[in-house]
């Protein structure tokens, strides 16, 4: 009996190892493609080649598209990739792409610009990393551009041009209208942060835009989005769930 059990355990271990190996194999980059660590270590303005999975994209225009992409080690902001309208239709969330472009920094946002891409075999959607506890941490930037969540945040008042307390503003100062970017504040652990609905990512017709318009001061919400950066964290929110 012991022998049978030992044999079974051995088999399970072998399968487990094979299984682990297969997962790792999925992460292997094609020849000439950088790992995420190599990408992060690459100098600004140097040519980079990465492989990642599309997580979301902004509206296509003028043969260009801006993509939020991620692999299992980190995330990439692909600014204005060259892209035909036909190829744009293929860039659905999960699609694996190989991107060649130049590493750049714009107001703290690390991105790939002047990039081209090709679609590869493979599909993966990232799970949102709970970044709530990281909001006040200097480590937050290590997750720049990742798909993240913020939980149990309380909607705080923004001030409109008339000095009124409002739950959100169209544009950063309230100068916009319906359809423009939405800015709102939310707090956790006594600290308040600003969040954005980027109109080219989540326009007025999307559920999240409508959810933001329905926010009230004091609402407790969970959020998901991409950890974009502009002179500091500037998360682009893609989902809002009212908790209470």
């Amino acid at each position: 009996m012991k022998k049978v059990i030992a044999l079974l355990i051995a088999c399970v271990l072998v399968f487990a190892m094979v299984s682990c190996g297969s997962t790792k194999k999925d992460d292997v980059k094609s020849e000439g493609v950088m790992t995420y660590d190599e990408y992060i270590a690459a100098a600004l303005d140097s040519e980079v080649t990465i492989e990642a999975y599309v997580q979301a994209k902004q509206s296509w225009w003028d043969n260009k598209v801006t993509v939020y992409a991620q692999d299992k080690d980190g995330a990439y902001f692909l600014y204005e990739l060259q892209c035909s309208e036909e190829d744009n239709a293929k860039l659905v969330p999960g699609t694996k792409i190989k991107v060649k472009g130049y590493k750049a920094e714009w107001s703290g946002e690390i991105e790939i610009m002047d990039g081209t891409f090709e679609i590869m075999e493979g599909n993966w959607i990232a799970e949102a990393l709970d970044a709530t506890a990281l909001l006040a941490s200097e480590d937050l930037i290590k997750h720049q551009n990742e798909f993240v969540s913020f939980k149990g945040m309380t909607v705080e008042a923004s001030t409109d041009a008339d000095g009124n307390a409002v739950p959100f503003l169209y544009n950063w100062d309230g100068s916009g209208q319906q359809g423009e970017d939405i800015y709102f504040k939310a707090s956790v652990n006594g600290q308040t942060y600003t969040f954005v609905l980027e109109k080219y990512l989540t326009g007025a017709e999307t559920d999240v835009y409508k959810a933001a318009q329905a926010l009230a001061i004091g609402d407790v919400i969970d959020m998901e989005g991409f950890l974009y950066w502009y002179e500091g964290a500037n998360p682009h929110i893609t989902k809002i769930t009212k908790v209470q």
Partner: peptide
């Protein structure tokens, strides 16, 4: 067109 300026909007 405004310069993302609430005063101009008003």
């Amino acid at each position: 067109k405004n310069d993302t300026n609430i005063t101009q909007t008003r």
